[in-house]
Each structure stands twice: as structure tokens, then as C-alpha cells.
Design a protein around this nucleic acid. Sequence first.
DNA 1: AGAATCCCTATAGCCACTATAGAGTCAAGA
DNA 2: TCTTGACTCTATAGTGGCTATAGGGATTCT
Lengths: 140, 140
Amino acid sequence: MSYKIGEAARLAGCKVETVRYYEQMGLLPAPARSEGNFRLYSDSQVEQLSFIRHCRSLDMSLENIRELLQFREMPSKSCAGINQLIDEHIDCVESRMDALQQLRQQLRNLRNRCSGERSIESCKILHGLTGCPCHSTEAG
Amino acid sequence: MSYKIGEAARLAGCKVETVRYYEQMGLLPAPARSEGNFRLYSDSQVEQLSFIRHCRSLDMSLENIRELLQFREMPSKSCAGINQLIDEHIDCVESRMDALQQLRQQLRNLRNRCSGERSIESCKILHGLTGCPCHSTEAG
DNA sequence: AGAATCCCTATAGCCACTATAGAGTCAAGA
DNA sequence: TCTTGACTCTATAGTGGCTATAGGGATTCT
Ligand SMILES: [Zn+2]
Ligand SMILES: [Zn+2]
Ligand SMILES: [Zn+2]
Ligand SMILES: [Zn+2]
């Protein structure tokens, strides 16, 4: 069976442009072409596209996905590198979570400074964003 | 007092290029220029830059910051819009946190499928990323 | 035959910067 | 005075992961 790009995209749950983009980025091999120059994907190429999309749904970078695809081409070697890659990605997700938690706290503190019933010039939210030295080199 | 761009950037804790970028995006007014065509920032312009950087450290979009800067130019009006803007931003941060938590759980489940001591062809992490129908329209 | 729907390439846009190239300006030291 | 070096200027391109557009060609349905 072979699939045109639209069907491959539908099967993988992405847009046609995204499929062409992955080809351009070297994540998908250039597929066969029909007489009319349409891309024709094999089952295994569609599977590779789905693999990429699944990795993307886990928010892996295309660079990480490229590595995983390379692992797939050395099936008899150890999978330790795969586990390491996932571990690093989990670490990365967790640092983002930590950063967002800090951010939320800061925003809540700021929000609590005002009830929204003042004038702008006396709004303590704006005051909290104004003239604070926390980012200047003088204060650091 | 007036400051050249390098000093303004240092005071606000950002790069020189970033300052020029904000000017180009209309977040900072075009400053005065010296005889030699160097940008010269006033105290209040440096303060505006610090304001922008503080907002950015809270991960607000430049579009949101533009709105906040507009609020600052109507000091006698109600600050309700400011509070609303912050509330919406908090919502936005919280949805990102939720998404990341789900993501982490998915990654942990995947990670638990393998100890890293197999061959790549038998690695259940790769298997978990392969051939699963969760993103195809067929399965959806 | 005509219309709708697909497909092609090439290019530009998104966000918030960052980096580079190639030139000009200025202050301090020899 | 000359030179060195740090600073500044503009313009342009790159980052990531797409998305959108323009301007055409192919295929399919009626
Ligand atoms: Zn307020
Ligand atoms: Zn600050
Ligand atoms: Zn494994
Ligand atoms: Zn999937």
C-alpha cells in the first residue's frame, strides 16, 4: 500500500505541511513519487511519521527525535541511550514545572496587591511592576 | 542624566540587542540621539525598560506588556483591566502547568517500561512510541 | 468539459529574541 | 598625535516547530 501525503498526514494526525517540513528537516526520508510528482509513502514511512508525532506529543525536540530514529537503525545495540534520553527529557519537563510554579506564586503575590477597584495610578500591581530593582545589575 | 544603550541594558538586566528590539516593536519610544548618533535614554525611559523586563520575567507576552504600558498612560482610569490581564495570565500559566503534569506522567509511564538493559529492538520504550494508534484519525 | 479537491514548490510569517557582518564613534594610554 | 579597544550603529539572518500564502499542476467526480 502507498499513501499520498494527505492520507499519511491524516493517519498520523498532523497537517500536510508538517509532513513536508519533517522531510525537509531530514526526519522523514524523501518518499517515492508518482508519475504526477506526488509523494507516495509506504506503510513503514507512515509508521515513522506516526512515531515522530507521538514523540512530539511528548514534547520531545526534533533533535531528540532524530536521535531516537537513529537508535532504531541499530536494533541489536543496547537501549541504555534511549532510557537516558527519556530521563533527560523528564528532567527538562520537571525544571519547566518548577519554573512555572515559581512564576505562578509571583503572579499570585502580585495579584493580591490589588482588588481591581483603584485608579491606575494607585494600582499596586503596576507599582509592583515599576521601579523595582530586582533585574538591575546595581542590585544584583 | 542620560544613558547610552549599553548602560541602559545593564541597568535593566538585558542585552543591548534586546533594547533595540523593543524599540523596533514599539515598546520603547525612539530615544534622543547624541551627535555621533548614539541612543541616549532618560531615567524614565530606563525605568520603562526595567518595567518591560520585569513583566517579561513574569513571562508576559510583548502584546500584554504593550497593553500594560497603555494603561500607564491613563493614570486616572480604573485599574480593573490590569487585574483582569494578570488573572488571564495566571490562567494561562496554570494551563501550562496542567499540561506539563500530564506530560510528566506520560513520560514516567513510558520510562517505567524499560530498565535500560535490553537491546534496542526489544526496548519497550521504543515499542511504546511505535505503532500506537493514539494520534491517527482512524483511532480517534 | 468543468469544478472540486488534491498536490507541488518557494517563500514569508509567528514569537522573543540572538548573532553576525561591516562600518562608525569615542575615550584613554603611549 | 596616533592607536588601541570598547562601545555603538544599521541591516540581515538564524533559532524551533511549525503555519500560511501565492501561484501553479494533477486528479477525480459529475
Ligand atoms: Zn489594580
Ligand atoms: Zn524587577
Ligand atoms: Zn529500553
Ligand atoms: Zn501515539
